[in-house]
Every structure is written in structure tokens, then in C-alpha cells.
């Protein structure tokens, strides 16, 4: 009798532990997804800003077709990227294209006095910063989640219910780690 009670109690406790573990895995995965959507919003914002930027600057920069095209192309590639890793790579490229673009802008004092351009530049700087800050948050969450699904005992449950590892949003280029140097 007593043995039966002990066994039942053990099963109940074990079950409760498993449920708790499962729920915490789900919570962590949702947090990763949420952190990712924070980045995604900002990346979209950046993509939305670029046609405007090109439109505003086109009239001033007649001899810089190449620079403008490289920005437009990088944007198209970034918008087509699928996985986190691909996105990170395409966005890195877009970032450096924008960097080069901003350096070229230096040579056009008229453009730098354009109110419309200044507003766009402010938006772009802000979006870069938001991406950088959101990226920190996302990578922290991914680290936490990946640790959890690889460590015993939660790795057993993670394997059973297909909790896959998540990718970091890494920007390789050392210079890209900082917000682009936006100069006036």
C-alpha cells in the first residue's frame, strides 16, 4: 500500500517536472521569436526607407549611378533572403553599401542641406541603432535558449518535441558592428 502511494507520488512529481520543463522550453522559444520579430520590424523599416532615399538623392547624384544601384541591388537581395543566416549576410552587405553611399554624399553639399534628405538620414541612423540594439537582445535570447535545449535534462525533452537550435544574427564585418558612420 505504502509502496503504491510512493510510486504514484513519484510519478506525479516527475510528470509535473516534465510539464514545467516543457512549458519553460516553449516560453523560451517564444521569447526568441519575439526578439526576432523586433529585428525584423527594423529591417523592414530600413528596406522601406531605401527607395525614398534613392528617389531623393537621384536628382543630385547624377554621376553616382553605380553607388545607387549597389544600394538598390543589396536591398533586393536582403528582401529575398530566407533564413536568419542568409538574412544576416545580406543585411551586412546592405549595411556596407549604405556606408559607401553615405561617404559619397559627403561630396554633395546641396544634398546635405536638403531637409527631406536630413529627415531620411535621421530615420536611417535611428533604424541602424534599433537594429543593433534589437540584435543584442535577440542574440542574448538565442544563447539562453540554445543552452537550455543542449543541457541535461531539458535536452531529452527538446529532442522529443523537436526544439531546434536557433541561429545567431551575426554581422561579420568588424566595421558593421557599429552603426554606420553617418557624416554631415
Amino acid at each position: 500500500m505504502i509502496i503504491a502511494i510512493v510510486v504514484v507520488a513519484l510519478i506525479v512529481i516527475l510528470g509535473a517536472m516534465l510539464v514545467g520543463m516543457y512549458n519553460s522550453l516553449v516560453r523560451l522559444r517564444n521569447q526568441v521569436d519575439n526578439a526576432w520579430s523586433q529585428i525584423d520590424v527594423q529591417l523592414k523599416r530600413r528596406h522601406d526607407l531605401i527607395p525614398n532615399l534613392v528617389e531623393t538623392t537621384k536628382g543630385y547624384m547624377k554621376h553616382e549611378r553605380e553607388t545607387l544601384d549597389s544600394v538598390t541591388n543589396a536591398r533586393a537581395r536582403a528582401m529575398g533572403a530566407g533564413s536568419v543566416g542568409e538574412k544576416a549576410e545580406a543585411e551586412t552587405e546592405l549595411g556596407s553599401a549604405l556606408n559607401r553611399f553615405m561617404l559619397v554624399v559627403e561630396n554633395y553639399p546641396d544634398l546635405k542641406a536638403n531637409q527631406n534628405f536630413l529627415a531620411l538620414q535621421e530615420e536611417l541612423t535611428s533604424t541602424e541603432n534599433k537594429i543593433a540594439f534589437a540584435r543584442q537582445g535577440y542574440n542574448d535570447q538565442v544563447l539562453f535558449y540554445n543552452n537550455k535545449i543542449q543541457m541535461f535534462p531539458s535536452n531529452i525533452l527538446a529532442g522529443m518535441f523537436n526544439f531546434g537550435k536557433r541561429e545567431y544574427f551575426e554581422i561579420e564585418d568588424r566595421g558593421e558592428r557599429e552603426a554606420p558612420e553617418v557624416k554631415f
Binding site: E122, E123, S126, K130, Q136, G137
Partner: peptide, 16 residues
Amino acid sequence: HQQLFNVVEEIKIAAN
């Protein structure tokens, strides 16, 4: 003041 709003939103993201 667009810049003020942008800066606050940036730090809001950073501070979570």
C-alpha cells in the same frame, strides 16, 4: 521632434 522619439525608441529596445 522626430529625433527625440527615435532616440527614445532606440533605448527602449536596448533596455527591453
